[in-house]
Amino acid sequence: NLRWTSEAKTKLKNIPFFARSQAKARIEQLARQAEQDIVTPELVEQARLEFG
C-alpha cells in the first residue's frame, strides 16, 4: 500500500474534484512504476502535467 506525504495530499486537493479520483489512480500508478512506496509532490505534479 502506498503512503502519501502531507505535501502530496495537499497538491491532490488542488486538483478539481471531478478529476481527482482519476488523477489519484494515475499518481499511484506512476509511483508503482517508479517502484516507490511513498507518493511525493513531484509525482502529483507529474500527473497534473499529463492531465493538462
Rank of each mutant, 00 (worst) to 15 (best):
N1H: 13
N1I: 13
N1A: 13
R3V: 13
W4N: 00
T5L: 05
T5M: 07
S6D: 14
E7D: 08
E7H: 05
E7T: 07
A8S: 04
A8G: 02
A8C: 02
A8D: 00
A8T: 01
K9S: 08
K9H: 08
K9P: 00
T10F: 11
T10S: 13
T10G: 07
T10V: 12
T10C: 13
K11I: 13
K11A: 15
L12D: 00
L12P: 00
K13E: 12
N14A: 11
N14I: 08
N14T: 14
N14S: 12
I15M: 06
P16K: 04
P16V: 04
F17T: 10
F17W: 14
F17A: 14
F17P: 12
F17G: 10
F18E: 09
R20Y: 04
Q22S: 09
Q22P: 04
Q22I: 12
Q22W: 15
A23M: 15
A23H: 07
K24P: 01
K24V: 13
K24A: 07
A25G: 05
A25R: 12
R26T: 04
I27R: 01
I27E: 00
I27C: 10
I27Y: 01
E28V: 06
Q29E: 12
L30N: 02
L30P: 00
L30G: 01
A31I: 02
A31C: 07
A31L: 03
A31P: 00
A31W: 01
R32E: 04
Q33K: 10
Q33C: 08
A34F: 13
A34N: 13
A34E: 07
A34C: 08
A34R: 14
E35D: 12
E35S: 13
E35T: 06
E35R: 14
E35Q: 14
Q36F: 10
Q36D: 04
Q36M: 15
Q36H: 08
I38K: 05
I38T: 10
V39S: 00
V39T: 00
V39F: 00
V39K: 00
V39E: 00
T40C: 03
T40R: 04
T40V: 03
T40D: 02
T40L: 04
P41W: 11
E42T: 05
E42R: 05
L43Q: 03
L43V: 04
L43F: 10
V44A: 02
V44Y: 03
V44E: 00
V44S: 01
E45R: 06
E45H: 06
Q46I: 12
Q46V: 09
Q46W: 10
A47M: 07
R48Q: 11
L49M: 11
L49D: 06
E50S: 09
E50W: 09
F51C: 08
F51M: 13
F51G: 05
G52W: 14
